[in-house]
Write a protein that binds this DNA or RNA. Structure first.
Lengths: 200, 200
DNA sequence: ATTTATATTGAATGAATATTCAATAAACAA
DNA sequence: TTGTTTATTGAATATTCATTCAATATAAAT
């Protein structure tokens, strides 16, 4: 009830924008095209987003929100159990089921904005800090990792995840993909099971 | 002498394109703007690149070429010496002096194309395979790493480098940047000095 | 029911877009 | 020098772009 027309429509517009970006690429989407996709005049879109930058900002907000929605349940699953099966954790961290909900092309197109827009850069940064922090919370629950620097460990784990996300996006041959994925999963496993030093 | 007008002009156009992308972002650069920047009519640009896709393709070719030019000397330095100082290697791998020659924003904008253009995807893939292969060659020269799976090691090292490249791009505070950089450099050092298993 | 605020429409704007074309100039080959 | 290919120009195309505006409809508040 509280969701006024305004809120609903803004969401609808951003989602239409996102769909078009998936299909045609961010650089090819115009306000007119979004209007056509949603069956509304461009002027209505301008009514809610008074210029295109705000529209892009809204899209990025949406994407980062999605990103978080997908990662978090994976991680929260382990917040219930106080014991931690490293293999299971790693499996979940590298699970790509989110690919159905989430388009990598749009993600990287938007990521490119961080280099010319500090607002966007900070949003991205905040998201990644949150992801690391959640992972640390989970690692802290593991008795085997007590007295280890889990902050540091979370940092090292995520840099592999992000490198893998970047690198694997180029691979379309399934066997090659799986082979490389296994390497990176193993790399993270080794980090978790390593005699972790406290200082860097 | 062998460089015909055609070759020279094409290069000039791509470089103008690249400069504009740095300043204004790939999505805001038009053929007319490139023409203005270079003092030539848009029709001349179309004479050499018959449509915009070819222009983008040329830009990506240029970028990947630059990328390679910057990495390779770093790595080739170690091809001369048969001994390998891991600290020095890691320093070079993470050196960001290339930032002066190379714009990260343009790189990621172009990277986003891999998701909708398989030609571009393959170009990016080829580049990354080459980088890993060069690193392997270097690692193979180190006696301490003999009988280790250097293929695998190169893969693990580069995924950290790439994750770091991605992640550090968000950090503008120099101290924080340095702190994180040190973590990732150390992570690679540990990989090199680790008792590396032969299988995965 | 009347007022007020918001939502929606459709038409219009001028600027910018990629691309085409015919004409001229320069470079090259014979 | 003549002929031919390539380089360069500038004007023109139709289309699309983000954005504005005034008019109308709907919803919310009184």
């Amino acid at each position: 009830m509280k969701s006024s027309i305004r809120t609903v429509r803004k969401k609808e517009i951003i989602e239409g924008f996102y769909e078009l970006c998936k299909r045609e690429g961010l650089e090819n989407v115009s306000i007119a095209k979004i209007g056509k996709q949603l069956g509304m005049p461009p002027s209505l879109i301008m009514h809610y987003f008074s210029n295109k930058r705000l529209l892009v900002l809204g899209l990025i907000d949406h994407i980062l929100h999605q990103y978080q929605l997908i990662y978090k349940p994976i991680l929260l699953k382990f917040e219930k159990d106080s014991s931690l099966d490293p293999n299971l954790l790693v499996d979940r961290l590298f699970s790509r089921e989110w690919n159905l909900l989430f388009d990598d092309g749009v993600f990287f197109s938007c990521y490119a904005f961080i280099f010319r827009d500090s607002t966007i850069r900070n949003e991205y940064k905040k998201l990644h800090l949150r992801l690391r922090s959640t992972l640390k919370t989970i690692l802290d629950k593991d008795k085997n990792l007590s007295q280890k620097n889990t902050d540091l460990l979370a940092e090292k784990i995520f840099v592999v995840i992000e490198g893998a996300y970047y690198y694997l996006s180029m691979i379309d041959e399934p066997k090659e993909y799986q082979r490389k994925l296994d390497i990176f999963k193993n790399q993270v496993l080794e980090l978790i099971q390593m005699k972790q030093k406290t200082e860097n």
